[in-house]
Computed example of a mutant assay.
Amino acid sequence: MHVITALGTGGAERQLELLVARSRQQSAVVALYEGGPVADAIRALGVRVEVLGMAGAARLTAVPRLVRLLRRYRPDVVHVHLLAAQLWAIPAARLAGVPVVVSSEHSLMDDSMEGRPLTPALRGTYRVLERLASHTVAVSATTAQRLQRWGVDPQRVTVVDNGIDVDALRFDPAARAAVRAELGVDDDTLVVGAVGRLEPVKRMDQVLRAAAPLLRDRGAVLVVAGSGSLAAPLAELARSLGVEGRVRWLGSRSDVAGVLSATDVLVSASRDETFGMAVVEGLVAGLPAAYVECPALEELPAPVAAAVQVPELDDDDEQVAALGRVLAQLADEAVARGLQRLPVDPALRSRYGAQPAADRVDAVYRSLTGG
């Protein structure tokens, strides 16, 4: 039984969808707060999804409700994802007598966790929860190294790189035409894509400012797929930059593959990444990518030609200018080749395929349950 905070369209949620679709185990999923597009997709796989609706005062009953649910299902393994699930579901699983509790660490940074500052209280709470769990799965070697710096025993951590459905992300001309028609963009217009939550850590304000010259001077369109608390401020920023008519705010989308097919260049200003899912998915879709941080690329044996890293700079304006220069370079190259796709680096396919990731997680379950 997987337990996760909610089932919208974030990276951890989509990883869970890929995992239950390919696992060789029988699965069920619990969302603590709310469902969403990923909940619908998981149900379509024939997997049962329970949504507890834990908003507000309902949090006070989270542990007993989870204990009752787990005693009814009697799972061999409870696998928790994200901090809220760790906080409520790890103690509940132990109270319910579940023999194995696995915790996936998706969003641990050097100084924050899921956007929360790493206070001594949070760090202490996390260490207690880690010891209550049987084992931790880290979504990248970078994440495992951060856990080790926290004092977590490396023998209690297994690295399972995030998986990507490479075949589903293959360029689709029909999807390109359909999404562009939906957005009112003709086939010859350069489209810059950005995928991610509209939250501070993703720095979509820098993306807007870096892309603004392309939008104003060259008639490009910026497509932003994602939702979050900064939606209104970002829309106001687009207006102040004079590019509001050249930006398409898509909100949360379940058809990321279609959005990427409609895109010509990908840009990510995100910092404090544990993996860099949006960047890797763009590269797998054959897009050139300008990015600031992507541990998944750093862990490959050789650079990926289609990806250009922008160094992290202390000055915000200098950061935007550097990102804008790389983005303009990639845009020029894309136009020069007629907006055709780039070949996909074989290393991305071999290392980050979805089925190998699911198989490795299944192997963790088998090792902890004695087979």
Rank of each mutant, 00 (worst) to 15 (best):
R68Q: 14
E34N: 15
G35E: 04
P37F: 06
L52Y: 14
H79T: 08
M54H: 02
R43G: 11
Y33L: 15
G46N: 11
R68L: 07
T61W: 13
I42D: 04
A55Y: 09
V49D: 02
G35Q: 03
V47T: 15
M54Q: 09
V47P: 12
A57Q: 11
R68I: 04
V80Q: 03
G46K: 14
R48P: 10
E50F: 08
R72K: 10
E50K: 08
G36W: 10
V51S: 12
V49T: 04
R68F: 02
R48E: 14
D76M: 03
A55W: 06
R65I: 03
P37S: 05
V47C: 08
R43H: 05
G46F: 13
L60W: 08
A39M: 05
R71G: 04
P37W: 14
A58D: 13
G35I: 01
L66C: 01
R65P: 06
G46V: 07
A44F: 12
L66D: 00
E34K: 11
G36I: 07
G53V: 09
V77H: 01
G56F: 03
R65D: 00
V49L: 04
L45E: 14
V47A: 13
A44W: 12
T61F: 15
G36Q: 12
R71F: 05
R43F: 00
D40V: 05
R59D: 03
L45R: 12
M54R: 11
R59K: 11
R59V: 14
L52V: 06
H81Q: 10
P75A: 06
A62R: 13
Y73G: 07
L70M: 12
L69Y: 04
G35C: 04
A55Q: 15
A39I: 04
A39F: 10
L45T: 07
T61C: 09
G36Y: 14
V78S: 02
L69M: 07
A58W: 00
A44V: 10
V49E: 06
L60I: 08
L45D: 03
R48W: 06
E50T: 12
L82E: 06
G53E: 13
M54W: 05
P75D: 09
P64K: 04
L66S: 00
L82Q: 07
L66W: 00
E34T: 15
L70E: 00
V63K: 02
R68T: 10
R72N: 08
V67G: 06
V78D: 01
R43Q: 12
R74N: 09
R48A: 13
G35H: 05
R74Q: 12
H79F: 02
H81D: 11
R72W: 11
R72V: 08
P64W: 02
V51P: 05
D40H: 03
V49I: 06
L60A: 10
H81S: 14
L45C: 07
R59S: 06
V63E: 09
G35F: 01
L60H: 11
A58S: 15
Y33S: 12
V67A: 12
